[in-house]
């Protein structure tokens, strides 16, 4: 007589994997994809991206799966190197801005009114200057190059996340378990590191995941404008901007593959962050 009711809640997991296995497989797949890009970018030889004028403008084939450009350089290797560079710059910049945001957000919420006012003022100041302008100014002042780009992107991307973290910490500080902890005589430092920091882990990852594409795209943008990486470095931004000139001649592969790979890489990063978050969260760990 038992009859299974049809409800929205029942979903047969594909491939008969349970959700945690799915999560872990997603993590492994996306992480190894990113790793492959990095390793590929580092270890692929520079030989293929030398100028071979006799192999100019080849459309994608087995030998050159992404085709070649107007100087006969293999687009696959260029894209790989470009992605590695973008990944590095993006990771470095987004990680450092998230760290700045966590430190300042915690400080604003825990170190008294004066610090809070100052940090809020700083956030407003940075938010009031248009992103790209500040970015260009900072990168230009530092003389361009990787250092300029990373610092520029870092310094322009922390403010909004700082606000989010400040609000979160404020709320945690007034929660009952923190109040109780204080009555046990625990110090502010102890409470900040033991009670509050673990709750910021999701913010940390979400911040990282959200800032990463920003960082990569801004890197590409200022490189495109000529204030970023030098044209000799095979950054995705440079590849794309160069390709624009050749698009009208029908060489679609010059922009298509690098653009698509950038998209796929950002998405892989996104999946990685999302799944790590799920795995670490006791509230969602069983979903």
């Amino acid at each position: 007589m038992m009859k299974v009711i049809e409800t929205t809640t029942i979903k047969t997991p594909y491939l008969k994997l349970n959700r945690r296995q799915q999560t872990i497989i997603s993590i492994i797949l996306s992480a190894s994809f990113l790793l492959m890009i990095i390793l590929g970018g580092i270890f692929s030889s520079n030989e293929k991206i030398q100028t071979y004028l006799e192999m100019r403008n080849l459309s994608p084939s087995l030998q050159h799966i992404f085709g070649t450009d107007w100087l006969g350089r293999d687009m696959f290797v260029r894209t790989l190197k470009g992605l590695t560079l973008s990944l590095g710059v993006g990771m470095l910049a987004s990680a450092s801005s998230v760290i700045i945001a966590v430190v300042l957000g915690m400080a604003a919420a825990t170190m008294g009114r004066k610090v809070d006012t100052f940090i809020s003022w700083l956030v407003d100041l940075f938010l009031s200057v248009p992103h790209l302008v500040a970015l260009i100014l900072i990168a230009f002042a530092l003389g361009g190059g990787i250092r300029g780009v990373v610092l520029g992107v870092t310094l322009t991307h922390w403010p909004s996340l700082t606000r989010v973290i400040r609000a979160e910490v404020m709320q945690l500080r007034s929660s009952e378990f923190v109040e109780i902890s204080r009555q046990f005589g625990k110090s502010s430092w102890w409470i900040a590191t033991r009670h509050i920091l673990p709750h910021l882990v999701p913010q940390f990852f979400v911040g990282l995941v959200l800032l990463f594409p920003h960082a990569v795209l801004h890197e590409a943008a200022i490189t495109f404008l000529g204030f970023g990486l030098s044209p000799h470095q095979p950054a995705i931004g440079i590849i794309l901007s160069e390709s624009m000139r050749y698009l009208s001649t029908g060489m679609w592969w010059l922009a298509f593959f690098p653009g698509l790979s950038l998209l796929v890489m950002v998405r892989a990063f996104d999946i990685l962050g999302e799944n790590l978050c799920t795995l670490m969260d006791p509230y969602r760990g069983h979903e």
Binding site: F177, P198, P282
Partner: peptide, 16 residues
Amino acid sequence: VQLVFQHPEKAVNGRW
């Protein structure tokens, strides 16, 4: 002087 609250869910850290 210790206090015990009404809602235990709020009085414990969910990540501990």
